[in-house]
């Protein structure tokens, strides 16, 4: 029995995917705390799709895919900014136009040159088949972002909560804005490798949303979310060994399960707590 449970760890690729998945889960979850509070969920979705052409070109030219993803993510954000600033269109429409354009371009590039990277990898991720070189890039991204968040989370929190106050105190909000977007682009590409472009957004929202239901303190969210994100990603990768399922699908289903439990049982913001409060108010 124990032998069976420990079996995944005896395979190098399994151990690697558990660690890589876990670190990507942690960093996505940390960012998700800022994304859901800033109201950037749609932008996160956009970025996770907009990095695809960059990844395709980078693979094509033999450059680190991180570089390609980063450039293409920033170009998309820039594009969104330009169209928004020069039209009366609503923000979500602009984001929709720009990110589907980038995604489509990515598809086109991949289909032109299918030998370098497959469409399935982009769409559904390939955590189990990740090369050790790519694995190191992902761990480097995750580590870098975790360090930046550890050092700068209070400024990012101030920026998300009250941008005007941040300006009044002389903080460079443009720099904080770019810092957050840059980290989102980088983690989007990391998550793309693990769960695929379609499910990246779950990694960038669900853990933060779960933590938000469980606490009223941002400091606590920064512990709960990565714990949820990291453990679910590791468990998903581990379980996929036995069930031979899509790793990305498994990870996101696990995250959703944890979210649902929080949604029902959270001490103050859960469904049952609300129900109890209504009954108390009705009876008093």
């Amino acid at each position: 029995m124990i032998d069976t449970l420990l079996m995944p760890f005896s395979y190098g690729f399994m151990a690697r995917s558990i660690w890589v998945g876990g670190s990507v889960g942690v960093v996505c979850a940390l960012l998700s705390c800022f994304i859901i509070l800033k109201g950037w969920s749609l932008l996160g979705d956009a970025l996770s799709h907009a990095v695809v052409p960059g990844v395709a070109i980078a693979y094509w030219l033999g450059l680190p895919f991180v570089l390609g993803a980063f450039v293409s993510g920033l170009l998309a954000v820039l594009g969104i900014g330009v169209v928004r600033g020069n039209s009366a269109l609503k923000g979500d429409a602009v984001i929709g136009v720009v990110f589907t354009a980038f995604f489509a371009l990515g598809f086109l590039l991949i289909s032109l040159n299918p030998s370098t990277i497959s469409l399935t990898t982009i769409l559904f991720g390939n955590l189990l088949g990740i090369s050790s070189g790519d694995a190191w890039q992902l761990v480097a991204i995750a580590g870098g972002c975790i360090v930046i968040i550890a050092l700068r989370w209070k400024d990012l929190l101030l920026y998300c909560f009250d941008e005007q106050h941040a300006r009044a105190l002389g903080f460079n909000v443009r720099y904080l804005n770019i810092l957050l977007l840059a980290m989102m682009s980088l983690t989007a590409v990391a998550a793309l490798q693990t769960v695929g472009a379609i499910l990246v957004i779950a990694m960038l929202i669900t853990p933060g949303a779960t933590a938000y239901l469980l606490t009223d303190r941002f400091g606590h969210m920064l512990w709960i979310a990565p714990l949820v994100g990291g453990l679910t990603a590791m468990t998903g990768a581990y379980l996929s060994f036995f069930f031979d399922t899509s790793v990305g699908g498994l990870i996101v289903v696990l995250q959703t399960l944890v979210f649902l439990i929080a949604f029902m049982l959270a001490p103050r913001h859960g469904l049952l707590a609300h129900r109890r409060r209504w009954q108390q108010e009705a009876s008093s």
């Binding site: 509070l37 909560f161 009250d162 938000y212 606490t215 009223d216 303190r217 941002f218 969210m221």
Partner: peptide, 10 residues
């Protein structure tokens, strides 16, 4: 109106 009162801060 300029503040998000649901923000998890004390």
């Amino acid at each position: 109106e300029e503040i998000d009162w649901d923000f998890p801060v004390s």
